[in-house]
Design a protein around this nucleic acid. Structure first.
Lengths: 252, 252
DNA sequence: CGTCCATTTGATCAGGGTCAAGACGAGTGG
DNA sequence: CCACTCGTCTTGACCCTGATCAAATGGACG
């Protein structure tokens, strides 16, 4: 179960090799928003029920429509949440960063996952069986509250994207998507905020409802004006402010 | 508090005139999904804390960014949930039908409403103070569960719209919006399913991310081919099946 | 009967999708 | 170590969908 097509050869911080992983990162884990308000004892009990999993880059964590047997917390890596249309076009719903919950369909009474989650890079997640959800809600109201807050944020986010797609031009949407990604996952470098996982033009297109061609043209144009710097599956946001201004500007 | 700019002159089923309204519709209310799983006694207690309100057509129930002092249940009428962009463009997030909860920001830990709700026609709602939410969740887990299910459905819906806006053509989006509205609120007539509240071309445009001009052209074209029948602020879906086929067809 | 708002319809045009081709880089197997 | 291949990215040319601009028509309501 810890292996998948490339599982055997992955080298992630040796969490699985350490039988006592939960104690190892306890202090880090305790700090996650998902666990705010839990007593150390409660946290112990919650972590004791979790199964750590390592997911290879490109491997699915769960698939759309599949029975929701577990819910997850991303400890390390980045996850892409995707839906495919009947015609086979993919749309990226969101990227998940370390510390976030995912696959929490069970929290809103769904029996199946509404989307597919794929590891954008090698990931480490904690998994809990869905049956535990009602117990967790009853025993650790803080945990449930944080989970519902997450759902509320995502609902808000989804509405924001509906509004964006309805009213903004392609360049604005792409600019905003890059700014958000940079804020969410940006790693500071000499040149600016580097998006911390491989992301192709195609990926950006699937996030913003456009084509890789248009994204490519925009990125080269912005590179020339010093807003971004980009390479193969790599984007660095150089001037976040000007990019954001572009995203919010009236369509000149 | 029961009055607003047009409040005094509205004529809605005389619920407020009846001091005992809750007993009046008890059997109807008990049947709403929001209350499934509550014992009659619990339902009594829940309803005893509710304030019935009458909202005139066009009047707001709550406004975006405003402090979320209450949550609501729509008993009668139809509510349009709207967001306005900084540039002043309006986007219709959804229409609420009788029996649905609204303004449940508090359930996901928000202090303010994320959107504006406006009565599309004269409405009757029940309002509860937000402070009651934690008590309700604790005392009536079924109520909370149903509320979270509602939120899950809306999240699902929002994602569906993101996908639509990202991948479908305007005509498909408009067709799908009409089919959904007809299913949700359609009143059977001799000609087909009549959408049960005044809805303008502009409204449909704001739901689908297009312009009233394009909607107008589509509706006249579809009227000629017998798919719909429409008039001033009025749309009847004549051939739901063919309209749905159009919505799902590959962009020929 | 006049005013206001919703709707229709035509003409124009541009944003951005589609089609096509080539360049570049990275990993693979010989 | 190099040649090959595949996937990503770039760039040009073209054209279509649907927005924009403009104006007229038609109900509804005071």
């Amino acid at each position: 179960m810890f292996c998948n097509e490339a599982g055997a050869s992955i080298e992630v911080a040796g969490i699985l090799e350490n039988p006592d992983m939960s104690r190892l990162d306890r202090s880090l884990i305790a700090r996650l928003p998902a666990f705010q308000g839990l007593t150390p004892d409660d946290l112990d009990r919650v972590l004791a029920r979790a199964t750590p999993l390592r997911i290879a880059k490109g491997a699915p964590i769960f698939e759309c429509e599949q029975e929701a047997q577990s819910f997850f917390l991303l400890l390390d890596g980045h996850v892409r949440v995707v839906r495919t249309t009947p015609q086979g076009q993919e749309v990226i719903i969101r990227y998940i960063s370390p510390g976030e919950l995912l696959g929490i369909a069970i929290a809103v009474g769904r029996a199946t996952y509404p989307a597919t989650a794929v590891a954008a890079i090698d990931c480490v997640v904690l998994a809990w069986p869905s049956q535990l959800w009602p117990d967790f809600v009853a025993a650790y109201p803080g945990f449930a509250g944080n989970a519902y807050k997450t759902i509320g944020d995502r609902l808000q986010d989804a509405h924001a994207r509906v509004i964006e797609l309805s009213t903004a031009q392609v360049d604005q949407r792409v600019a905003l998507a890059l700014v958000k990604l940079a804020q969410q996952t940006g790693k500071p470098t000499a040149e600016g905020l580097l998006i911390d996982f491989p992301i192709s033009r195609q990926d950006i297109a699937e996030m913003t409802g456009t084509t890789l061609h248009t994204v490519s043209r925009l990125l080269t144009a912005w590179q020339e004006s010093g807003l971004v710097k980009s390479g193969r599956q790599k984007v660095t946001v150089v001037d976040s402010d000007r990019l954001l201004a572009l995203a919010e500007a009236a369509p000149s």
